[in-house]
Design a protein around this nucleic acid. Structure first.
Length: 497
RNA sequence: GCUCGUGUGGUGUAGUUCGGUCCAUCAUGUCGCCCUCUCGAGGCGACGACCCGGGUUCAAAUCCCGGCACGAGCACCA
């Protein structure tokens, strides 16, 4: 045997860093972050990343999160009045707290319009009356458009016409002056505000000129003292555009971090507008349809907010475009909820057997008690009455000759007769779940599976069932009790295994 | 086309700042074994990766150069 290097034995294995990376230039108590959704529907699993990461950083640095509704477009992505409250409650559900500051861009219009005027008066912005296509042509050739050199006075006159509603939509736009030689064409004299005469669901027809995201967001971040922006990397050019605007105003741009695109294999993308259309067309029953990746749907199915946050924080903040599996989220969820879920039996394709027992001194009798949770995480027992001498097992299990009825007895199963062979576990025969026939109640388990909703019928153990309760169906998986109506089967909604 | 960004096992991540302590972390997954009571649970174990090619160096996942692949932006959407 060769000599062992003692150092090699003591070498420490490297550890995985836990939690989020440090934020650059972050000072305890002074960090201000923001989460800025478009209120065109409730929050999705994708938004949950933004909410989780931002709120976690706020917690780490004892900072604040601004929840801002970016509702400055009423034509392409019109805001949904109901969505403001949905998002607020989705946010609260997920983080367990209210956002520190909540604002709507549409109520802050005077601020944006005022800054637009400052920009024009300062000569670093101008009103452009070229058509979008003409401008694009000029911009691609690094050529300034004819409106650019006009005087501040002329710009202010046009601006007045714009905000008074005297210029039609598409006829004018306010641009931020940049270097036309910028290598990135997307940045050259980018548009800051445009005309929209449509009715805004929150403020009506009060405003004729609306800021675009890059302008509105930049001004508002400064107003709120945002120190760190975390956004999708598709918005990298926004950062560059806004940095130019900030330097015009003499402000310092916040630290900016990015994440890549996320897909959850089982859902695909998270298009809110796509879901909205499908709901309107009756493909889905509503925003909480179990097949949808909305937070409300996930919550309805029994996903836990802490688990969802833990999942996103574990993923961390990287610029890679990723595709994750729902299975991973489910594993986080199972870990989180297991200790709180009572067990119940659910027998699909039930087969009824006659229970035959010999009277002997080890016979536990007709009243047996089974723990609500295998390792006692939940106290108490379920009390079963075997008085009817009839039991239900799954058809598949009934085809096996010798099985063990979980927590009861080893039996031989021949011709519909379950004959007790031993009370104690006597060999390695399979353990199956079962229920006394007189304690069984019909149930329907609804399982979302991609575009379809599968339904599995069976008999559930009717013991202390409560509506809204998440239980673990032994050997099947977690499910939530959706409805408990007399005379109707219990409705269960599938969570995961 | 122009601009920007990213490349670590099946998936996702740690490590990359300041090269060695990395025969590369953890989770999820898959497979196997165990189980005195969920074989869709639990326990244990195994599997599996630094995009490619050069270079610098005693030493590279880490630094340099060149490829390649993938993604995003180039909206009067967010």
């Amino acid at each position: 045997m060769a000599a062992t290097n003692p150092e090699a034995l003591h070498r420490e294995k490297q550890k995985k860093r836990v939690g989020l990376k440090e934020l650059p230039n972050a000072e305890q108590g002074k960090v201000v972050l923001r989460f800025a959704p478009n209120p065109n529907g409730p929050l999705t699993l994708g938004h949950a990343r933004g909410v989780s990461i931002n709120s976690e950083y706020a917690k780490m640095y004892h900072g604040k999160v601004v929840l801002r509704f970016d509702d400055t477009d009423s034509k392409v992505k019109p805001p949904m009045p109901a969505a403001y409250d949905w998002i607020k409650s989705d946010y609260e559900w997920l983080t367990g707290t209210k956002a520190d500051i909540i604002i709507r861009a549409s109520e802050r219009m005077p601020v944006y319009l005022d800054h637009a005027e400052q920009m024009l008066a300062g000569g670093f912005g101008y009103v452009c009356r070229c058509s979008a296509t003409d401008f694009k042509k000029l911009r691609d050739g690094k050529d300034a458009c004819p409106c650019r050199p006009r005087s501040i006075e002329d710009n202010l006159i046009d601006w007045k016409l714009m905000i008074e509603g005297n210029i039609a939509e598409g006829e004018a736009v306010v641009r931020v002056k940049t270097d036309m030689d910028l290598p990135n064409p997307a940045l050259r004299d980018w548009p800051a505000l445009r005309i929209q005469h449509s009715t805004h669901p929150m403020v009506g027809e009060r405003y004729k000129v609306w800021p675009l995201l890059d302008f509105q967001s930049a001004i508002e971040d400064h107003q709120q003292g945002v120190t760190h922006i975390i956004r999708g990397k598709d918005l990298m050019d926004s950062t560059r555009k806004q940095t130019i605007l900030y330097s015009h105003f003499g402000w310092t741009y916040p630290e900016t971090l990015y994440w890549g695109r996320v897909k959850v294999h089982d859902f695909g993308g998270f298009s809110t507008s796509g879901m909205r259309t499908d709901i309107e067309n009756g493909i889905y029953s509503g925003w909480d349809d179990a097949r949808l990746p909305t937070l409300r749907a996930l919550r309805r199915r029994g996903f836990n907010a802490t688990a969802l946050r833990a999942f996103w924080i574990d993923l961390g903040l990287t610029q890679k475009d990723i595709s994750v599996s729902l299975q991973t989220i489910e594993a986080f969820n199972a870990k989180e909820i297991d200790a709180n879920c009572e067990r119940r039996a659910f027998v699909r394709n039930a087969v009824c057997l006659d229970l035959i027992t010999e009277i002997d001194e080890s016979n536990p009798g007709d009243i047996i008690s089974i723990s609500k949770h295998p390792d006692g995480a939940i106290e108490g027992s379920r009390i079963w009455n075997l008085g009817s001498r009839k039991i239900l097992v799954e058809k598949q299990d009934a085809e096996i000759e010798t099985i063990r009825l979980k927590d009861y007895a080893d039996i031989s199963n021949i011709n519909g007769k379950a004959i007790v062979q031993s009370w104690d576990r006597s060999d390695k025969r399979p353990i199956v779940h079962w229920i006394p026939e007189n304690m069984a109640r019909e149930a329907e388990l609804s399982i979302p599976h991609g575009m379809e909703l599968r339904s599995v019928n069976g008999m559930i153990e009717d013991y202390e069932l409560k509506i809204g309760q998440i239980i673990q169906l032994e050997r099947v998986g977690f499910a939530k009790i959706e409805s408990l109506t007399d005379d109707l089967p219990v409705k269960l909604i599938w969570l995961h295994s």
